[in-house]
Computed example of a mutant assay.
Amino acid sequence: MDNQEEYQQNDSGEMTLEWAREEVDRLDHVTLNIAVTGESGSGKSAFVNAFRGLQDTDEGAAETGVTETTMEPTMYPHPTMPNVKIWDLPGIGSPMFKAETYMKDVKYPNYDFFIIVSASRFKENDAILAKEIMKKKKNFYFVRTKTDTDVSQEERKGVGEEQTLQKIRKNCLENLRTLGPPPVFLITSNKLERFDFPELVNTLERDLPYHKRDALVMSLPVHSKEFLDKKYSRFKKTAWVLATASAGITVIPVPGLSLAFDVAMVVSFLTKCYYSFGLNDGTLQKLSERVNKPILAKARESALVMAIAEESSLAAKAAARLGAAGVVEALCILVPGPGNIAAAGISFATTQSVLLEGVKELYSVAKGVIEMAEVK
């Protein structure tokens, strides 16, 4: 009987450990493949770059031009979230990619959803493509780019921005009326926070399976406080899940396991926050040069930012903070039943506190970066 109970406890512990590891690794392992398509010269590559937080001239940016520059599906990994992949697809209707065979030619099962881009009005090929995507039971979203150019041109004629946006939207919907018509999102890749990009993000987040939403939100370029707040909210929820995992690990009677797991988890989590908030040296250096302000130096005044950037002291700091609680947990476990419950509670509270304090500090630094760069 005692052997059977021991087996059940070990088996439960292994299951708890496996679940906890899955939760910790989920942000890295859940992939999101975004297909960006449309007619030649519609601004697909510029949109791909903007979504990745890159300028068209940055290293690793998709090639842009007034003619078709993408001759085959090209994958661009997100600079700081490699599990998010944006695919720049060839223009539909080009000699090598005809509308009737387009979906098969670009290997449609590889993508989670499609963004159909146009720089002017949507045409017959766009509608044909949307219908083919529907047949394959994939989601698609119409994105009308270069909206800022039209707004500026109309303003010179004395036409207000809202009136111009209504005119563009009406024209797009008329050309897509055979599809319902579907919603159209007006954006500019030069400044994603303008116009309908936030609404597009909210729609994508709503439509994606739950386990892929984190990947989307955490990969968003930090172009506005709204996007930053969205990331912060998501990370706070993740902190609760990870603290719960920590509590589950605590009851496994393996010396040092709980502390080792918690330290690795804290380091992984805060490093993920650091990159998602755009606080890595490369991103901040580019921003500093763009706005001609010492943003990188200002961000590095944070001890936590420095610890993550130098990849040296973060684990030691986490171990020191979590170690004292680990001693108490070990003593509690010596008392079966109530002791295990107490140990789990201590682990949950301590780990959650460390995670939340860390993400709050990184959020505060990122908010300061936005304010310093005068981004609203």
Rank of each mutant, 00 (worst) to 15 (best):
L204A: 12
E68M: 04
V263G: 11
A320D: 15
K136N: 15
Y111I: 08
L186I: 00
V335G: 01
Q352Y: 13
D214R: 12
S312P: 03
L17K: 13
R156F: 04
V117G: 10
A247T: 04
F277C: 04
I86P: 13
S246Y: 02
L220F: 01
P109Y: 03
P183F: 05
F269H: 12
M1W: 05
A215H: 05
S353V: 01
P221Y: 00
Y76V: 05
F122N: 11
F97A: 02
A318K: 05
E22C: 07
F227Y: 11
I341R: 07
S258G: 08
K298T: 10
E205C: 12
K376Q: 07
Q285F: 06
N10Y: 07
K170V: 00
S233W: 04
D262C: 10
F113D: 10
D196K: 03
H223T: 08
T147W: 04
N280I: 00
A264G: 15
T250K: 09
L208D: 11
A315Y: 10
E226P: 06
P181E: 13
E226L: 11
K98D: 02
K231T: 03
P253Q: 05
A319E: 15
S312V: 04
I308M: 07
Q9I: 03
G43T: 04
G160I: 02
K138F: 07
V36S: 09
V375L: 08
M15G: 12
A239M: 13
